[in-house]
Design a protein around this nucleic acid. Structure first.
Lengths: 199, 199, 199, 199
DNA sequence: GATGAATGAGGTTTCATTCAT
DNA sequence: GATGAATGAAACCTCATTCAT
């Protein structure tokens, strides 16, 4: 009906949904908010998605994959450089701070919904953790760092990142997320025992 | 059902509210659920609290203070021992895992509600962070550990703890939170540079 | 419990009720408002009155009688003077403007309650009309004015008075009720054909 | 029940609302009563009106305008005849007695609601008074009647009409409003000093 | 006589979902 | 495919009334 019909109604709805959900939380977001923002209609919404729940789940899945893919690609490019794990960490932080809304949605709004989305939240977090854990493991395998519980560490890192982001969102006086990236990376890295490139 | 208990009714409502909110999330929790569980009535609920929002806020405030107090006391007792900061960390973890419901409420259910409770969530997290930051600072001051950004570290730790707890809640196959306590503590501690009691 | 216990709890409640009802209307007035303003309690209220409805009815009856009595007495004193009917009219207007709250309650708040208080409202208006009609009749009987439908005239006058009062209450820029008294009296009187004291 | 009528639903709701409000008063009228009588649904009601208050206000405004317009038109037609003011008065009375429900709503049910609808009630009465005052002024201007306070007179007349209507509604034994029309008109007219068509 | 915590029926409003067009 | 008026279950909250103290 409007301008760029190119983009496709479904995509416009999905885009609007990210904004609305990340702004108001799952329950606070009305289907009407989404249709208004996307300049579509209730009918269009329910033509493309069977329910409000379903679009939220779709969003969770999609976003995780999209971000994980972006992280993977970015690391791949950067690799070879210093400690791969450091690159991974930096990339995750950068990408999270770039996709602020999506991240907020994945880590904040998706939580606290009772048992409704437990499965999806768990999966999402797990996928991120898997990326981190994978790179940690490689670093161990190639002897860059001393062995450690990669799983626990991955979740701990994820949590640390999440919390720092949360506080930066909530605290208007906090420095922008971008500025927190470097010190946070240092902090997390410092927990690793660097195997001195012996010899 | 009768006029019993005197002050008891309000407390019973608060207790029930913790259970219901931590079980179903803020929006999923019905005022009716709370009154049923507390064996009171809608009227009693609204006599003691002006709204559903208000009891939730009251709960957030109360729980933070209660837990922070418990942590403080526990650390005080233990103090003198090894690295105080280690005691603090261990205590936090223990207490969190003991007050599972309250913690779940503070760290999970209170999030994802749009901007409704931003202020309260922020305050709650800040108070916990302040405890951790405080002990980190003392450790720095007395030369136990090398200087670092105590604030950032406090939030990172809080997030790490939170995320590990979250995953342990969500993943039925995860080991109980209690078992994760020790390794998590080690992980977090390892980020600190212990000033070798030189010489 | 409070100061002038002399006045009696029941009376304090009745006084408060006039204020609250005339301020907020019947439905808008809460039993709690009345007990708060009278510095008593729900228990006291329901000890003295079986229901909210009942105190309102009691009030209607009481006020009408009190005001009618005051009018009667005032006229009696003044009588003999000029046209009795003019004295009556002036008195009614004066007394209404003195008991603004009671009047507002009787003529405004008591209306618009569906059929609930129809009987009482009808009675109240009728009693006032009867006073006016009575004096009109006397004036006719003693030949001061030409015969006319005293009943219809009485209601018309009552309505005219009521409406002028209403507008003066609602319109903040209206001159005070007291100032409207004289011109209104003239207007109403001018509808009467004064039998020139012939001869 | 279906999607029929297009614009019809809103009008059906408005029509039903007039009936219900004039029957039960504002507070006594339930939104459910209105939806039942209009054979629609709660959803339809709240789709068209944001609140119960709002439909009531809408009704007040609409009805006044509709009736005032009808009066204006009727007078215009009749004009030229005798005293215009007499035509106006007769018309108002006729129309009021024809729109009994609407009138009841405007003059009775809208009152006694505390300060909630003061503004609207004031406006409604003012608009009616303005019509009357306007015609009175013309009569003065063209020399038909002697000068007088047109505003005060307009309100007094409105009140007289209102009260007579009210009593006729409340008193089951009262003659029908139609029969009261003529005598009331005479009464009100008799207050005017007819400038003898001199010479 | 008085208190005020407690009751619970009932009211207004919300909002995901449906469906005729 | 899209529209948006309509549905109605369900939620939050109100407030007259009760009753143990």
């Amino acid at each position: 009906m409007a301008k760029r019909d190119k983009e496709g109604t479904k995509q416009r709805i999905l885009d609007a949904a990210i904004d609305v959900f990340s702004d108001k939380g799952y329950n606070g977001a009305l289907v009407d908010d989404i249709t208004k923002l996307s300049d579509t209609s209730k009918g269009a919404f329910y033509f493309h998605f069977p329910s409000k729940k379903s679009i939220f789940k779709a969003l969770l899945g999609t976003l995780v994959e999209r971000i994980v893919a972006e992280v993977d690609k970015a690391i791949e490019d950067k690799a070879g450089a210093e400690l791969k794990i450091e690159a991974a960490l930096e990339t995750v932080l950068q990408i999270f701070s770039r996709h602020e809304k999506a991240t907020r949605l994945l880590f904040l709004e998706a939580t606290g919904l009772g048992k409704t989305f437990d499965r999806e939240v768990f999966d999402a977090h797990q996928k991120f953790a898997a990326v981190i854990a994978g790179h940690l493991q490689s670093a161990i395998d190639d002897g860059s760092i001393a062995p450690l519980d990669v799983n626990l560490t991955a979740y701990a890192w994820l949590g640390a990142i999440h919390e720092v982001m949360l506080m930066s969102f909530l605290n208007p006086q906090s420095p922008p997320l971008a500025e927190l990236t470097k010190p946070l990376k240092s902090l997390l890295m410092s927990a690793l025992t660097k195997k001195a490139a012996t010899k």
